[in-house]
Design a protein around this nucleic acid. Structure first.
Lengths: 168, 168
DNA sequence: GATTTTATGTCAGTCTTGTTGACTTTCCAA
DNA sequence: TTGGAAAGTCAACAAGACTGACATAAAATC
């Protein structure tokens, strides 16, 4: 099934050419650079990296989350995450509380300072996103989300959808 | 100018909420992981990383390109790129020819072996892209491209558009 | 109650890929 | 022709990913 049943004119047959796909690949590459550029600049001042941003982001989104849960979202090893969390806890941006039910667990929450930095980072990233969305318009945004969702690994799509539908 | 002039119904007022933007941010994050996953698996077998993939990609796209030109596209320091190129040249995947006009320049081209690996990597990445595009449909793809382009830094957008329009 | 599994943390070592600084070769213009 | 700018290379270092081994405590299971 190389070519699906195209009902219309014929230009739809072209949107899956290797050239067209290549352009999409390059668009992802260049856009992702822009996507991370603004928070990266802020993080530099703190001696933090993208890993710290991601941790702050998901802890804000799911307060009282456990280390294990975060590992699933971030897709890194616990040693890698631990280095980041240790720094954030030592610097007073994240609080790690022993789980009330299961004392093996650590429940993570942002402190005031952590929430403040997370807001700064988020706002920087949202700023660019907002501009892009406004330029492209609602229909384009819907398509954007649709394609991105289809590109995810199934596991990640589950995580994504859970976050999307749950905490709104 | 918090809310732009919305002509239509009212749902358009919602598409720029912080929550909506946050979902877009997470979509980018999770989708980019999928985007790189397939080539990463192939690269592992060769002892290469993403940086090698990017170099091969852009050398294939612009044969006889110079190191300097590549630096602009990749947005890394020349020292960083040099390490990658050295490995690819030593392994016989890339040929570096002294510039015929300006002998300071190195003109880069893929060897047979380099082109073969690049094809493998590209095809893996295109495979996922093709599936996602097919699932989402042409309209969604157009929106996807539109938003990504709006997210790029102006410099990168220039590079992107030059590649897009030039070598087709 | 003893054993196993789970959740987390830590130490040590490696790899990729980014960085800066110092250096060579080549070109070009004053 | 000389001195600076440009292109590229080499060396050393840092961030942040990884693996593997091991420790501890608590929960779950037998």
């Amino acid at each position: 099934m190389a070519e699906g049943g195209a009902a219309g004119g014929g230009e739809n047959l072209l949107f899956l050419t290797d050239e067209h796909l290549r352009k999409g690949i390059e668009a992802m590459f260049f856009a992702y650079r822009g996507f991370t550029a603004d928070p990266d600049r802020i993080l530099e001042g703190y001696g933090y990296g993208r890993a710290h941003h991601r941790a702050l982001h998901f802890i804000r989104l799911s307060p009282e989350t456990t280390v294990n849960n975060l590992l699933g979202l971030l897709g890194v090893t616990k040693q890698s995450l631990n280095r980041v969390l240790r720094a954030l806890i030592e610097d007073g941006l994240v609080e790690s509380k022993i789980g009330p039910k299961d004392k093996r667990e650590r429940h993570l929450v942002l402190t005031e300072a952590g929430a403040a930095l997370e807001r700064d980072l988020s706002e920087a990233q949202r700023g660019r996103m907002r501009t892009a969305y406004r330029q492209a318009g609602p229909d384009a945004v819907a398509g954007f989300r649709k394609v991105l969702e289809a590109m995810m690994d199934p596991d990640m799509r589950q995580h994504y959808q859970r976050l999307r539908d749950g905490n709104s």
